[in-house]
């Protein structure tokens, strides 16, 4: 294969990460501290996710990486190549064929199965951090289940904007105990957090790992009179016509023309392959 240990990390580091993953699964939504290593990529490029993937992969796995839903962006391509080189695993862009999926800021549109594992890259794992900067205090708040401040924040959204304006990294309560940052996924993806697959979250710079086992109750925080809403741009995809997928808005020229396309590139590609068409498919716009 090459001169690296399997999946780059040394065995002792992998054991440390694996122990953290097991404790994370045992206490869903709780952030387990771990001794994050320096990786051959900068913080913010998914070092947490990469370390969790490295500790999780076996040679039999098929690995997929997405960045904001896309398989072909710099971040996704470099992480995929990293594991092709250091672990020798198969890689794919097809969600259904992957056994381990590392993701930055999206959950794929295709429903994940019990045979799959999804690894999230997390920048700020602490959902209370922007409300309370001190780690000692947020630890205490989690231990006392003192989450009133988070509801005040959502309430202030409503009083200022008339609706809960938080649109990504929307806080959830896991298994009726811990409030958790689902990583900066759009709140459109929040309902998918209750899934059949194992979900692992890695924050490299912040040195935290947490997890959500399959079929775990995950509730987006809200109020009785302002219930949670999974929102998306009110358009069909201009390439594949999908009305139920999360969309990116793309500015096309200086005249203000724009298009909406699926953020999940594999979902959009497979729909187009099945013959689905959108508003711009005939113009050869892409």
């Amino acid at each position: 294969m090459n001169e690296y240990n399997f999946a780059y990390l040394d065995e002792q580091t992998k054991r440390m990460i694996r122990r953290a993953i097991l404790k994370g699964l045992a206490v869903p939504g709780y952030q387990v501290p771990f001794a994050s290593r320096e990786m051959p990529m900068p913080y913010g490029w998914g070092t947490g996710g990469v370390q969790v993937s490295a500790a999780t992969l076996t040679p039999d796995d098929t690995f997929k990486v997405i960045d904001q839903g896309a398989d072909d962006t710099t971040n996704a391509v470099s992480i995929r190549k990293f594991f092709e080189n250091t672990a020798g695993v198969e890689t794919t862009e097809e969600t259904e064929k992957a056994t381990v999926i590392q993701t930055r800021h999206r959950i794929p549109e295709a429903k994940l199965t019990g045979d799959q594992i999804i690894v999230y890259q997390v920048p700020i794992p602490e959902p209370l951090r922007f409300l309370e900067p001190r780690e000692t205090e947020t630890r205490k708040m989690h231990s006392l289940e003192e989450y009133g401040l988070m509801h005040v924040k959502l309430y202030e959204d409503i009083s200022q904007h008339g609706a809960i304006s938080t649109s990504y990294a929307y806080p959830v309560k896991v298994s009726e105990r811990y409030v958790m940052d689902p990583s900066p996924i759009p709140k459109f993806d929040n309902p998918k957090l209750e899934m059949d697959a194992i979900q692992l979250f890695g924050a490299g710079r912040e040195q935290r790992i947490y997890a959500v086992p399959p079929h775990t109750k995950v509730v987006s925080l809200d109020f009785e009179d302002y219930p949670f809403e999974a929102t998306k741009a009110d358009h069909p995809c201009d390439l594949c016509g999908a009305e139920d997928s999360y969309l990116d808005e793309v500015i096309m020229d200086d005249a203000g023309n724009r298009m909406f396309v699926c953020s999940d590139t594999d979902f959009c590609r497979s729909r187009r392959a099945q013959g689905h068409e959108g508003r711009l498919s005939k113009e050869g716009a892409v």
Partner: peptide, 19 residues
């Protein structure tokens, strides 16, 4: 083969802890 055997063993351990 420590890296490979441990990876397979951990997958089993993680799966049962998650399920």
């Amino acid at each position: 083969n420590a890296p490979i055997d441990a990876a397979h063993a951990f997958r089993a351990a993680m799966t049962v802890m998650a399920r």
